[in-house]
């Protein structure tokens, strides 16, 4: 079975008398160590799909298996556990806790894991920060770091739990193009190291880093194809 298996996924909002089909029957499978970008204009259902893949939301109907477990019917707390153990989020606006050091920020998912001792948490967080080349910035607070460094702290936080997928939502949207490229290089490396990455973006050159692109339109998958890079790999 695929790492992520989505079948006939619907998300329908009732806005007064009109029905909004944010997702209108989406089926997609993502394999272990795939690097997929999800693209689409605003209103295409891109964000809704990302929220569902990130287990932040539940679908109106459809099947969603993540790593073999059916996520579609889970309750709030079960979803929280899945997010904690299987998903690493990277957000456009970094979303670090401003008053906490890099180390504390990266430790956070481990704290909510609840089964990891304090000194292990510390070691794991330092290892994750070292992986993103911030081993010397563990005690800095977000406002003492540059935008690129902040996003790298966020990537370290996404990695620390050893998640099944890394879900990045416009990770370069708040960065200048040079720093953005640095972050994308970091994702490329993580992919090479065996991580599964899902990238949500509206920029073609960012999406080009992935080996596969899924294009959404009006809540449906319009295109699902290998990128040039993906084609090179398969050739």
């Amino acid at each position: 079975m695929s790492l992520i298996q989505v079948k006939d996924l619907y998300k329908i909002y009732q806005m007064g008398n009109t029905e909004v089909r944010a997702l209108d029957g989406v089926s997609v499978s993502i394999e272990q160590n795939e690097y997929v970008s999800i693209m689409g204009p605003s209103g295409s259902g891109k964000s809704t799909l990302m929220n569902l893949l990130g287990c932040l939301d539940t679908p109106t109907s459809g099947e969603f298996f993540m790593d073999g477990t059916n996520v579609a019917t889970m309750g709030d707390d079960e979803l929280a556990h899945i997010r904690n153990k299987k998903i690493g989020f990277v957000f456009q606006t970094f979303n670090l806790l401003p008053k906490s050091t890099s180390l504390r920020n990266v430790e956070l998912p481990l704290i909510y894991n609840g089964e990891i001792k304090a000194h292990e948490r510390r070691d794991m967080a330092i290892r994750a920060l070292t992986r993103v080349n911030l081993g010397d910035r563990v005690s800095h607070k977000p406002n003492e770091l540059s935008g690129g460094q902040r996003q790298r702290v966020a990537v370290a936080r996404a990695l620390v739990n050893n998640p099944a997928i890394i879900l990045a939502d416009e990770p370069t949207g708040n960065l200048d193009s040079k720093t953005g490229e640095e972050i994308m290089t970091l994702f490329d490396e993580l992919h090479k190291q065996g991580n599964t990455i899902i990238l949500v973006t509206h920029e073609e050159h960012i999406a080009a880093h992935a080996s596969r692109v899924v294009r959404l339109l009006d809540g449906k998958i319009a295109v699902d194809e290998a990128t040039n890079r993906g084609k090179k790999v398969t050739q």
Partner: peptide, 16 residues
């Protein structure tokens, strides 16, 4: 609110 959102995304349950 935003901090709560982040914590929840990272796996905090309601009771936490």
């Amino acid at each position: 609110t935003r901090e709560i959102g982040v914590r929840k995304a990272l796996g905090a349950t309601r009771s936490q």
